[in-house]
Amino acid sequence: MSEITYVRGDATAPSVKGVRLIAHVCNDIGGWGKGFVLALSRRWPEPQAVYRAWHRDRAHNDFGLGATQFVQVEKYVWVANLIGQRGVLPQGLGFARPGRTPMGSKGVPVRYESIDTGLAHVATKAAELGASVHMPRIGCGLAGGDWSRVEPLIMRRLVERGVAVTVYDHGE
């Protein structure tokens, strides 16, 4: 069986050939301004603009936990805005360690079930496009998730379906 490929680098700049689908986790309150989304916005304005419009019109669309929006940003590059986070951490709370409960909080925003649902949408779109999937360690930054819980979801939803997945650890 295939595995996830781990590399040090920038998930917004996959160096493989073919169609690339960049997946990341968004919150369910319309917030866009910290974490991986900043790298996306520096490269392309469309994912943020489309996400904010999707949130604004949420009474008339599928915006919510588990929903995934696909935005084409280049001829062979798509971005998946995956709603896998309930709210955001309160201002000033920090993590004791990455992937652990934030200090002073009773929980974290990550919603594993929603990430799982969103990854199923990503798998379907990747198959439709013949795309490889690229991502940071989704749900494990500002969402406060634990990679040991996210990685099996990626394995089951993507890798076991034959989708090539690369996870990027940002290098300094």
Rank of each mutant, 00 (worst) to 15 (best):
94 G>T: 06
25 V>S: 13
109 P>A: 08
86 R>M: 10
68 T>I: 12
46 E>Y: 10
111 R>F: 00
99 G>F: 13
141 G>Q: 08
75 K>Y: 05
129 L>V: 11
51 Y>G: 04
130 G>S: 07
86 R>T: 02
38 L>C: 15
151 E>V: 04
38 L>Y: 00
135 M>I: 00
141 G>F: 05
114 S>Y: 10
126 A>G: 09
132 S>R: 01
134 H>L: 01
99 G>K: 07
99 G>W: 07
86 R>Q: 14
56 R>F: 02
104 G>V: 04
88 V>K: 00
74 E>P: 06
32 W>H: 04
63 F>V: 02
70 F>D: 02
153 L>S: 04
101 T>M: 12
129 L>F: 06
69 Q>R: 15
33 G>L: 13
154 I>N: 06
116 D>G: 09
26 C>S: 14
144 G>R: 01
80 A>Y: 13
27 N>I: 08
61 N>R: 09
119 L>F: 15
156 R>L: 01
155 M>W: 11
120 A>Y: 06
110 V>C: 09
152 P>G: 07
118 G>D: 12
68 T>P: 08
40 L>C: 02
24 H>W: 06
24 H>M: 07
69 Q>S: 14
144 G>P: 13
130 G>E: 10
123 A>Q: 05
100 R>T: 15
137 R>N: 05
128 E>S: 12
58 R>A: 09
151 E>L: 10
59 A>H: 08
55 H>C: 14
112 Y>D: 03
128 E>N: 09
117 T>H: 14
59 A>F: 07
38 L>A: 10
137 R>H: 11
111 R>D: 15
103 M>S: 11
149 R>E: 14
